[in-house]
Design a binder for these strands. Structure first.
Lengths: 351, 351
DNA sequence: GCCAAGCTCTGTATCGGTTGAGAAGGGTCA
DNA sequence: TGACCCTTCTCAACCGATACAGAGCTTGGC
């Protein structure tokens, strides 16, 4: 039988409360008694109060739930995601809180159960497209949730629309009129290939929806109809998927003069696809990404910089100490268009 | 006030147990009553049994603790680590279990508390060098621990010594006699630079200790004294640190004809350092890594392949269902020396 | 010398469920 | 008709701790 508080209490001849205090509120008892208690505990092999029991009584789980899509590895493969997580972990660490990764299965029922069963003080929704019911379940738990789409929930993010609108305007100023967009999560079956996105508003994924909206608006302002823009679905957010998707843009005639992507990882894949075809970024085809991960700078890629680390940190703070004022519950961080060599004037050359 | 089982029970007019059964043991009550209960729950905004309370009673936390060193981001930056984690997550998912990342602070006391406070069913020790007391605390919890150094604990790994011995023999066969080793966690203050490692056995990090031992043995068998081998500490396991460390080997005279590293990430850094000096891998200087991450193949780098995904999977299985037979509690997976272009005959040229 | 204030420690209620024994009611079978 | 069983639900104990009120004893101020 594992020792409990009571075991130790009996051994020392004090009450259970006193042993509890020895661990949780050292100022509540004399140092000598505390020492005796800790000695007895050591002797009995008692390694401190049971975390679960403590959680139940104190009402604090000591963990933040992080909801993931199925592909955990993909999530960790994205430097942006890792940075976000790191910011989150930093704050969690300072608050003596852990990070509970909740892998969501593909089947809805399993995902719901996972969310309902997670012993956490709050959830961060992370790379989870809106069509998962899991977000709903998280919200139903009645604990703080960062970045759900629910009204009144906590939010930290950027002005996605304005960010890509700026990028789009940059492209329009350069004279591009044949443009392709590579995006993740815009086809429900998650395949790679050209898809028709008649109304951006109906997209399930928040991020893709907003980023596409920004581009659409910028293009519209310059007189480029959305229906003329080629939208290509990538099966996942990775360099390889980006390259595969880019093929659908680059191998058609007339070839687009610009290919933009909703993430840097996808955009790096587009650059790979250019290289494979001996096309020069910024001259033959302009490319824009999103996030500004370290590799983007190395690749001299134009992109939108967003503060990933800060996003994570703020998500953590919002969760662990939700502000009362509704205005403070939504934080919008600034972004910046970083122009590098991968964008240039539209090539007027043939095909 | 949040609704509880009792709230729902009162509403429907049944006992608390019955409501509990409605969620956890549907076969114990009539379908109609169950429906009525679930309806009432929905109406009251009750989202299922409190996970913490359930854990307390049932004795299952529903999470595996993953102990990390401080730099969470570093851990996620290593593709090997990500693969391992992915294997673990896969098994966890199948067992309706989450992954609790426990960030360990630098100060011992904080780390201990984090370990003692984690509501988990077991721990996986992950990139934690031996000098952290946290491992001790995990063991003291009396729950399964994978890969602690304790006798009788669960273990999944590879024969590190034999792996690097094979790599070392490969190097010896090629005639190399001026060799440098780049390793992480071999200097307590974690700085970059040449360090003296008189006795490999005393190294705190299990992994570095074993891998260096394998090389030492292979070198010794070929008549190369350990004291003649240059050992260089890297401040962390990353490409950049690897490159920085490599400088201490490459910029000396006579220059070593081979530089081996304890991880692929470090070895890739060594290759970067070679490139910066216009030295040809495999011709001017031979390089060997460890892990065989995808980038290693792309860089044509000789390395030791270990099954990261399987390691994660098996770690998970050991933890969630520890075998009774002590023999089954230790799993040693096979490795393979993958010879690529980064190793070649020792260059006999001047300096 | 007396009362208030402080310091230590105890007792009891409670956190929100799960569990196994058993009660009530209806049906089957000889 | 009575013995027996099955289904459906209730009861009371328990999981391992924390919170809070208050008891007993020392101190300190006046």
């Amino acid at each position: 039988m594992k020792p409990t508080l009571q075991t130790v209490a009996d051994r020392v001849g004090v009450s259970r409360s006193t042993v509890s205090n020895a661990y949780s509120r050292p100022d509540q008892l004399s140092p000598e008694l505390r020492e005796r208690i800790l000695d007895a505990a050591r002797e009995l092999g008692y390694s401190g109060p049971n975390p679960t029991a403590r959680s139940l009584r104190s009402g604090r789980a000591g963990a933040i739930g992080v909801l993931f899509t199925t592909a955990l590895s993909i999530a960790f493969t994205d430097p942006y995601a890792v940075q976000f997580l790191r910011g989150l972990a930093e704050v969690a660490e300072d608050n003596r809180t852990g990070l509970l990764l909740v892998p969501l299965r593909d089947d809805d029922e399993g995902a719901l159960e996972a969310v309902r069963n997670a012993a956490v003080d709050g959830f961060v929704v992370y790379c989870v497209p809106g069509w998962y019911k899991a977000m709903e379940a998280a919200w139903a738990r009645g604990i703080p949730v960062v970045n759900s789409d629910h009204f009144g929930s906590l939010f930290v993010g950027i002005d996605e629309i304005a960010s890509t609108r700026a990028a789009g305007e940059h492209l329009m100023r350069l004279g591009h009129r044949r443009v392709a967009i590579v995006a993740d999560y815009i086809s429900p079956d998650r395949r790679t290939g050209e898809v028709s996105v008649p109304s951006v508003e109906d997209l399930g994924s928040y991020v893709s929806r907003e980023r596409l909206t920004g581009y659409r608006d910028a293009f519209a302002a310059a007189g480029l109809e959305w229906s003329e823009v080629i939208t290509i679905s990538a099966a996942g957010n990775s360099r390889e998927h980006g390259a595969a998707a880019a093929a659908y843009a680059l191998d058609r005639a007339p070839r687009p003069t610009a290919v933009v992507a909703t993430t840097d990882l996808l955009a790096l894949g587009v650059l790979d696809a250019l290289a494979a075809r001996d096309l020069r970024p910024g001259r033959d085809v302009s490319v824009i990404g999103f996030d500004d991960i370290p590799d983007a700078a190395q690749a001299h890629m134009t992109t939108v910089r967003q503060p990933a680390l800060d996003r994570g940190r703020i998500a953590g703070r919002l969760l662990l100490d939700p502000p009362d004022d509704p205005a403070d519950r939504r934080v919008v961080l600034p972004t910046e268009l970083v122009v590098r060599a991968s964008t240039g004037p539209a090539s007027t050359g043939s095909v």
